[in-house]
C-alpha cells in the first residue's frame, strides 16, 4: 500500500515502478502461486469425474444392445445373457412418478416460502424442516415409507415412487427458493406498479425469470432419486420381469448394479457396468430434457 502511494507521488523520478521487476515481485509471485493452485484444483477435481466416465463407457459400452436393454433379468446372475429391461422400466416409472409428485409440489412450496410466507412462523418452520430433510439419509426415508405404506399394502413401485418423491422434495424446495430469491425485487415492483396482481406477477414475471435455475435444481433432485438403492430395496422389493404397474414388486437400475457388482462372476460384473452406463445416460437425457423445457419458458437475454 505505502509503496504504491509513494510511487504515485513521484511518478517522474521512479519510472521503474511500472516495470515488471522491483516492488511488484511479491505480487507476481503471489499471483502465480494462486493461479497454479487454481489450475491444480481444477485438474484434481476433473480427474475422478473423467475417470468415472471413462470406466463406465469403456466397460459398459460393449454390453449395450437392444436385448440387454429389454430382456428380463436372469434368475442366476452368474449366467451370461439376459438383460436389465425390468430395472430400466422400474427406474423410469418410479423416478418419473416421483418427479411428477415432487417437482410441482416443491416449486409451489418454494413460491410460498419466498413470495408469501417470507419470514413468518410457518415459512420458517417449513424451511427448517426441508433443510433437515435434505440431510436425512435415504434409508430413513425408506423406513418411513415402509412403515406408512408398505406395511399396510405391499412392496410396490408406488411405494418406491413415494419414497423417491420424499427424497426429492426438500432438494427441489431449497433450490427453487434460492432461485426465486435471486429474482430482483425491482421486477416484482415493476409488475405490481403496472396493476398486476401478485399471482399474475409470480406466474408471468418471477417464475420465467427463475425457471432455468429451478430446472437445474429439480434435476439435482431427479438425479438423486434415480441413483437411490437402499429405499428401493426396502420398499419396492425385487422382480425379474418388466412391471409397468404401480402395484407389485419392481426393481431399479441402482439395485441391479448393486446385485450384479457384488457377484464374483464376469457375466454379472459386465451386466453391472452396462446398467451403470444406462443409468448415466438416463440422467443425461433427463438433463437435456429439463434444459429444453427451461429454454422454452425462460426469457431470452438477447
Amino acid at each position: 500500500m505505502t509503496t504504491t502511494v509513494q510511487a504515485a507521488q513521484q511518478p517522474l523520478s521512479a519510472p521503474s515502478g511500472l516495470g515488471r521487476g522491483s516492488l511488484a515481485t511479491r505480487r507476481r509471485l503471489a499471483n502465480t502461486l494462486v493461479r497454479t493452485g487454481i489450475w491444480l484444483s481444477v485438474i484434481i477435481a476433473v480427474v475422478p469425474v473423467a475417470l468415472v466416465m471413462y470406466y463406465v463407457i469403456a466397460k459398459g459400452a460393449k454390453m449395450i444392445s437392444w436385448d440387454f436393454l429389454t430382456k428380463p433379468i436372469p434368475r442366476q446372475l452368474a449366467n451370461p445373457g439376459g438383460g436389465i429391461g425390468p430395472a430400466i422400466a422400474g427406474t423410469l416409472l418410479m423416478t418419473g412418478l416421483a418427479s411428477l409428485l415432487a417437482i410441482p409440489l416443491g416449486v409451489l412450496g418454494a413460491i410460498y416460502l419466498n413470495e408469501y410466507g417470507k419470514q413468518n412462523a410457518l415459512a420458517r418452520s417449513v424451511r427448517l424442516m426441508s433443510n433437515v430433510m435434505t440431510g436425512v439419509p435415504s434409508i430413513v426415508m425408506g423406513l418411513f415409507i415402509y412403515t406408512a405404506v408398505v406395511l399396510t399394502t405391499e412392496q410396490s413401485g408406488l411405494a418406491g415412487a413415494l419414497a423417491l418423491a420424499c427424497l426429492m422434495l426438500p432438494v427441489v424446495i431449497r433450490s427453487s427458493e434460492e432461485m426465486l430469491r435471486l429474482v430482483p425485487d425491482e421486477l416484482r415492483q415493476a409488475s405490481l406498479a403496472l396493476g398486476a396482481r401478485k399471482w399474475r406477477t409470480i406466474v408471468t414475471v418471477v417464475l420465467p425469470a427463475a425457471v432455468s435455475g429451478i430446472a437445474s435444481g429439480a434435476l439435482l433432485g431427479v438425479a438423486r432419486a434415480a441413483g437411490e438403492t437402499a429405499p428401493i430395496v426396502l420398499v419396492v422389493g425385487l422382480t425379474q420381469r418388466v412391471n409397468w404397474h404401480l402395484s407389485g414388486s419392481n426393481t431399479a437400475l441402482p439395485v441391479q448394479i448393486y446385485r450384479n457388482a457384488t457377484e464374483p462372476f464376469e457375466a454379472a460384473t459386465d451386466r453391472a457396468w452396462g446398467a451403470a452406463l444406462t443409468l448415466v445416460v438416463i440422467v443425461l437425457l433427463a438433463t437435456l430434457i429439463s434444459r429444453l423445457i427451461a429454454n422454452r419458458f425462460a426469457i431470452k437475454e438477447r
Binding site: 396493476g195 426469457i299 431470452k300
Partner: peptide, 20 residues
C-alpha cells in the same frame, strides 16, 4: 391494484422485464 392502474410508477433503476 386499481390505484396502481391509474397511478403508474417509473423507478430509479431502469427495470425492464427480461423479455423482448
Amino acid at each position: 391494484i386499481q390505484v396502481r392502474r391509474q397511478i403508474g410508477m417509473v423507478f430509479q433503476k431502469p427495470n425492464p422485464f427480461p423479455k423482448s
